[in-house]
Design a protein around this nucleic acid. Sequence first.
DNA 1: ATAATACGCAATGAAAAGGTTGCATAATAC
DNA 2: GTATTATGCAACCTTTTCATTGCGTATTAT
Lengths: 115, 115
Amino acid sequence: MSRSRGTAAVNVSEAAPMFAALGDATRLKLLGRLSVDGPLSITRLSEGTKVTRQAIARHLYVLGDAGLLRHARRGREQVWSLDLKRLEKARQYVDQVAAQWDAAAERLRAYVEDR
Amino acid sequence: MSRSRGTAAVNVSEAAPMFAALGDATRLKLLGRLSVDGPLSITRLSEGTKVTRQAIARHLYVLGDAGLLRHARRGREQVWSLDLKRLEKARQYVDQVAAQWDAAAERLRAYVEDR
DNA sequence: ATAATACGCAATGAAAAGGTTGCATAATAC
DNA sequence: GTATTATGCAACCTTTTCATTGCGTATTAT
């Protein structure tokens, strides 16, 4: 019945910025890349994309502001990686919204079957 | 280990529009309202908000285009409600992205412990 | 019939998002 | 020390987004 993760009550409105950050194909691809290949530099992440390095950098900072990524300087490179702690928080948001929907689905099902 | 729902492979990039639709506080509130109170008209959904009816209507259509809501005419009213089928699809998106993150977390944990 | 209600459509406007180019600066390689 | 590489910064442009106002139309209520 309950989800696999502990889910502290979170104001759904606070989830909006995170969803907004996820609402772009380029950014989703960046997340996917980082989740597969691990920490990478901006230039490395730019290779293979159709937009400029600056555009990629922008997207990375957007994801960073949403708390989904972290960045650390290593020499002349800026290395980006997934932020596990905040990723867990993000998961909580998603779980909570999903749970809300589940509850609604349940009520709607009951309502429909009741006639 | 696996999630509670069956998760057919879905291109993550296709999830972007859905996340974008979720990336607005007003829209999240509308979803919450509909999941609690059931199907409601535009005017009803506008009451208690700080924006105009037209703004709310716009948001509803955005959610509708993302496949999260349906609307049906009832007399002079336009009644909006959650779309269960597509909501399930949305859930699959979320689960898949979350799974991807979980996998990344696992790898990262292994990597860190390996040194 | 007439009034009130619920909505659609269109024009408009301010602000944010997504992307580009050009140039400057810091770090590394040779 | 000079060139190369990786990034930062800033100006600028186009498109979308979010919200508004004004007016028209369809549907119900009286």
